[in-house]
């Protein structure tokens, strides 16, 4: 199927959009509009699946990561030709008259036309700035033509929790890394608060001294099928503890609950000076922490798409910790699958 939209036309429409925004704003407030762009963010999603949510997430991201957003919505059952529209996401910072605006381009069409999309997108990316591709559909990811679109991006972000075959998606991501690409996975991003808490706990030198004797790790998760987050967490702990000479036994266990993440984590050191450290996700956004018998609470913000993407967008280069953990998680998942 041939492309029925022309990048030149979209670029012209964008240019016209800025002129009209400027005129509207001048008439209204005489303060003008400010154009902000620090990257191109390409979002690939299935038509109709979460239109509203994507819009809200992008609007929230714009204030911190202003970007030229290109949202590609693909419909598996449609035979409509490709279409495009251009609009602006604008906001007025509190107490200010001037609006800040970011460009947004929406491309819609049949999934079968995905092969035509990269040629349309290539001229639309903002020059000299990073290109981030956020794939929200496991099905589109599996379409062979997706690799051409991925080739345009400096970094690919996805949520492996939506993929049925954990080993397959881990293998594909590891393959992308081996070819020099950058990858972000929400299943890993969801673990940041957990990992940060573990790191903070062992900032205490009394606990740090007992770290080489950690012998048991127990990770609980909400589903019978082990979520990829659990493989990541297990791999990260194993890989990091190996650096201090510890080779703990890891067990993963399902508990009641829902979601893609982790329900709880326990680390134990036995012997003359034992240590028990645990963190359990509680109701709402609070987690209960027990360290050496002392209980406390900490905030564990809900992992919304906005928060996860915000964290990923703040890392536009290589992420050495994730890149070391990904192959180890793949190895663990393969063992688990057997």
């Amino acid at each position: 199927m041939a492309a029925t939209i022309h990048p030149d036309k979209i670029l012209r429409e964008m240019s016209d959009l800025w002129v009209s925004l400027s005129k509207d704003s001048s008439a209204e407030t005489a303060a003008g509009v400010l154009r902000a762009c620090s990257m191109t963010l390409i979002v690939v999603a299935e038509e109709g699946a979460d239109t509203m949510q994507i819009g809200e997430t992008l609007a929230a991201l714009m204030t911190e990561h202003p970007s030229r957003a290109i949202v590609i919505r693909l419909d598996p059952s449609s035979d409509r030709p490709l279409g495009a529209r251009v609009f602006a996401q604008c906001w007025r910072p509190f107490g200010q008259r001037r609006q800040i605006c970011c460009e947004q381009i929406e491309i819609t069409g049949p999934e079968a036309a995905l092969a035509d999309v990269p040629a349309v997108v290539l001229p639309l990316v903002a020059a000299d700035l990073p290109v981030i591709l956020w794939c929200r559909s496991a099905r589109v990811f599996a379409v062979p033509a997706f690799t051409q679109l991925a080739a345009l991006a400096h970094k690919l972000v996805l949520d492996s929790a939506h993929f049925k075959d954990s080993v397959d998606i881990l293998e594909r991501m590891a393959g992308a890394l081996q070819h020099g690409g950058q990858v972000g996975d929400f299943s890993w991003t969801r673990l940041t608060r957990w990992r940060e808490w573990i790191s903070q706990t062992f900032e205490n030198r009394a606990y740090l001294a007992r770290l080489p004797r950690i012998s048991h790790i127990r990770i609980t998760h909400p589903q019978n099928a082990v979520p990829i987050s659990a493989w990541y967490l297990g791999a990260w702990l194993t890989e990091r503890l190996a650096k201090v000479g510890s080779k703990p036994q890891i067990s993963l266990a399902p508990v009641s609950g829902t979601g893609f993440g982790i329900c709880g984590l326990e680390l134990r050191a036995e012997g003359a000076s034992p240590l028990a450290v645990s963190m359990t996700a509680g109701p709402g956004t609070i987690a209960e922490i027990r360290v050496d018998g002392v209980t406390s609470c900490t905030a564990l913000p809900e992992s919304t798409d906005y928060l996860l993407m915000r964290e990923e967008l703040s890392i536009t280069g290589h992420d050495p910790v994730f890149e070391a953990v990904l192959p180890a998680a793949l190895a663990l998942a393969k063992q688990g699958a057997r």
Partner: peptide, 14 residues
């Protein structure tokens, strides 16, 4: 000797 904290991740942690 007390080891260095191996869990640090300055790219993502405060």
């Amino acid at each position: 000797m007390i080891p260095e904290n191996p869990f640090q991740d300055p790219l993502r942690f405060e």
